[in-house]
């Protein structure tokens, strides 16, 4: 079958010859360049992804068995907690009406275990705050360059509409002691999804973490830490890398001298896990990608 296809088409990966243009291309008003007759060009995956395949062949099954919670009866309906104000009273009608006893967010149960909600990585978000940028916003430029080579992404770069590229984070508050004013650029961040996210994670676990001096693993919270805290029920695992670790990424290491200094990173691995014990599920997933965790 495969050889038959190859014989008929020549090579499946090589482009033969471009067809002759049938009509004149329109000229773009802004750039003055010819625009091809195609509308919405969207680029999908252009290579198989090793870690993603590992997830689907091995990790998804194991994580379902590991995180499965057996519930033999349907769940009772949620307890009706009285609201603070009478919602029918015209005086308090459109007012924010919290339940008595505070937010129940940290006590929410995870959805029932099923093959469709096995924990999965959704997004990796990386950000760096630069204190120098408060006084001199030009100092963000080398940081942006480093982040670009780290992410390999620009705004809608390579025809990927979801790519936001490197985003500049502006201060929200005014903090007198740090001379922080609202609206000034102080940090840089980028989000990765799909194969780029898995490749970034592979770079971290294979090139960066093994070369950090005295690195033993990512610290887990103490056993006494509250299981109801926002971080414990959020399904996000966050960790930081020191400035010298940036130089261990292969795309930075190749010309590290071009950057005036190295910067630390905050990395957030965002999963679809939610409810009580979500962070434990997220850690189980990430340890499947060879990210080591350390008990406190």
């Amino acid at each position: 079958m495969a050889s038959a296809v190859r014989n008929r088409l020549g090579s499946v990966t090589r482009f033969g010859r471009a067809p002759p243009p049938s009509k004149k291309l329109r000229i773009d008003k802004h750039s003055g360049l010819p625009r091809p007759h195609v509308g919405n060009l969207i680029v999908r995956d252009f290579a198989p992804c090793r870690l993603e395949e590992h997830y689907h062949t091995t990790l998804a099954d194991d994580l379902m068995y590991l995180t499965y919670k057996h519930e033999h009866l349907p769940r009772p309906p949620p307890r009706q907690i009285r609201l603070t104000y009478d919602s029918n009273d015209p005086y308090t009608k459109n007012r924010y009406n919290p339940p008595v006893g505070g937010s129940q967010a940290g006590k929410k149960l995870p959805p029932p275990s099923s093959p469709s909600n096995v924990v999965q990585l959704q997004r990796v978000s990386v950000h760096t705050f630069l204190r120098d940028a408060i006084t001199n916003k030009g100092s963000l430029l080398p940081l942006i360059a480093a982040m670009r080579s780290l992410a390999g992404e620009t705004l809608k770069g390579g025809g990927r509409h979801s790519s936001q590229g490197i985003q500049i984070v502006r201060a929200k508050k005014s903090v007198g002691t740090w001379k922080l004013r609202p609206g000034i650029p102080i940090a840089v961040k980028f989000d990765l999804t799909g194969p780029a996210m898995y490749d970034f994670l592979a770079n971290v676990t294979e090139f960066v973490l093994p070369r950090i001096r005295d690195f033993r693993g990512l610290q887990m919270p103490a056993p006494s830490a509250s299981p109801n805290s926002a971080s414990a029920v959020g399904g996000v695992v966050s960790f930081g890398l020191p400035p010298e670790a940036l130089g261990y990424f292969p795309q930075i290491e190749v010309n590290q001298d071009s950057y005036p200094k190295m910067y630390g990173l905050h990395i957030h691995c965002i999963t679809n896990a939610e409810g009580l014990g979500a962070q434990n599920q997220a850690r189980a997933l990430l340890s499947g990608f060879q990210l080591p965790f350390l008990k406190k």
Binding site: A2, V12, T13, F15, D45, F46, A47, P48, G159
Partner: peptide, 14 residues
């Protein structure tokens, strides 16, 4: 072969 053709096509657009 189909996957290879698909990846080559996407890589070309990219």
């Amino acid at each position: 072969p189909f996957e290879r053709a698909y990846y080559a096509y996407q890589a070309r657009i990219r």
